[in-house]
Design a protein around this nucleic acid. Structure first.
Lengths: 224, 224
DNA sequence: AGAAAATGTGAGTGATTACTCACTTTCATA
DNA sequence: TATGAAAGTGAGTAATCACTCACATTTTCT
């Protein structure tokens, strides 16, 4: 199985090198405008002429940098997909020997806080990605590949590690992962997308959600 | 505040009467085709000519029944939004005096099972609704109104009821509700949308998810 | 400075879009 | 069976779409 053929791998390598392929000022304006309008009206309902207008650029300039409108979308959605899973690429996830967390709670807390901040900083991009992913097979495969190969497999090892230590109930790791993901995604979606105007204590929110999760997946206080 | 002005109320009343406004065979074909293609490619990327083609109907026939393309969308998305919250309209939710559930667990179980089955039977419609809701203000307001006035307020009373009985930890009801919703939606999304091909034991899944939720929100086994 | 390359422009193109309308067919009822 | 209404049709329409291309401007390199 040659990993070099996976399209998302190149995405991640480029991300690791922090290589920014944006060359000119106007190209930057085009990207900004596209992100803005795509997140407002959706990709299919956005016209290239409107993007050009908001970017203060001639319509032809868009196609100088991006072969097609879809190419423009992918240059936006691809990187954000990579950045979403990027923190799970950390070396420590592979070898749990020198794992930096002694407690599951600390592990989940650091992920929850980090991804909450990330979501707030990249709300528009995430909205675009989630919205378009079901309709573009390449995007779907890219995201699926990242999630299964990077996120799922790595966190599964972590969960097994903590299960062996008795910190997590005996259950299929995917159920533990799904529970944690559900609770944290529910928290993030609420504050970032549903009621972003409502202020909240970030630490308190994470802590209370974490509390419910930990009581849900800890052996402590169970009779079995 | 005159409730008769709320657009979603009419939706729900019509639903209660089980009134089906579809008059002709061809209109039914149009709806079927539209649901199919909208869920495949999204509303904006679907052309009326394609809908007519798949429905085996002349394009003009669509506009005989629906003034505009958007009108067709709303006639699909509106009813499914109403059906999503319909079970929470049950009388029992209002007066918790003669409440049919003695245990929170039973309450959440019945909701989870019912909505899981509902989601499987209406996957395409739900996909269309969730997809288009952010881009159509009328739809957004309709759904928001339903969720806050019907679902949120009613379930809040139920949670307070069980908190008073000591079955649920002392916490803002919305946090309890969000936790339950997150876990169940996570389960439903997984099985209905992410990996629908993967078979699973429905009861077992609900029971295990419920187990994690209950340990998360029960006072039992806590030291506080 | 001068040549070559990269970037930017906007009028122009054929295809497609949602929607109309004059007309035909089907249906309900008296 | 006659008649008006409802349902169905498909060619036609103006607008908009993504995209091209010959040309202008700026940047880069020698």
């Amino acid at each position: 199985m040659s990993e070099t053929k996976e399209p998302w791998l190149g995405e991640l390598l480029r991300l690791a090198e922090a290589e920014d392929p944006v060359k000119t000022v106007k190209q930057g304006k085009i990207l900004e405008a596209a992100i803005e309008i795509f997140s407002e009206k959706g990709y299919a309902a956005t016209s290239t002429s409107e993007i050009a207008q908001r970017a203060g650029v001639a319509e032809g300039t868009i196609f100088r940098h991006y072969k097609t409108k879809k190419d423009l979308l992918l240059s936006i959605a691809g990187p954000i997909a990579a950045k979403m899973v990027a923190p799970f690429l950390m070396r420590e996830f592979a070898k749990i020997i020198d794992f930096p967390y002694n407690w599951v709670e600390d592990f989940f807390r650091s992920i929850a806080k980090d991804r909450l901040i990330f979501a707030r900083q990249n709300a528009k991009l995430i909205k675009i990605l989630l919205h378009e992913v079901p309709f573009h097979p390449e995007l779907l495969e890219q995201l699926k590949g990242m999630l299964t190969h990077i996120v799922f497999h790595r966190i599964e090892k972590v969960v097994l590690h903590f299960q062996a230590q008795g910190q997590v109930i005996e259950a299929p790791p995917w159920r533990i992962m799904r529970s944690a993901a559900s609770l944290f995604i529910g928290m993030i979606v609420t504050h970032v997308f549903l009621v972003p105007e409502h202020p909240f204590d970030e630490d308190e929110e994470v802590e209370r959600t974490l509390d419910i999760l930990m009581h849900g997946i800890s052996p402590a206080g169970r009779n079995a």
